[in-house]
Amino acid sequence: MKISIKDVEHVALLSRLELTEEEKQEQLRELNKILDYMEILNKVDTSQVEPLAHVLPLQNVLREDELRATLPKEKVLQNAPEEDEGMFKVPKIV
């Protein structure tokens, strides 16, 4: 067992997923199976290998700092579950 139910609860909190008890048990079972399978990677010697995050030799793609058209506010808000006075509305924070 790589991870415990405590780990599942911690990762679920980081992931902002309110899992049911049943879902936690299923995640525990499947994640452990998958992580066991990942063990195979430890057979590869990577001590002399650089990590490859991205295949293209691109770095810091910049553009001129010029004004460009942006989406109008109505379009930005058109999908909002709740809006008020041109803003996204969420439950009380403080």
């Binding site: 902002r16 997923l17 899992l19 049911t20 879902e23 999908n79 579950p81 996204f88 969420v90």
Partner: peptide
């Protein structure tokens, strides 16, 4: 917050995020 589903019954932001996503 900005689009898609929002869980109905949340009383704070964290539970709204977590319920919506679940």
């Amino acid at each position: 917050v900005r689009y898609g589903l929002r869980a109905e019954d949340a009383d704070d932001v964290l539970s709204m995020f977590s319920r919506t996503r679940n």
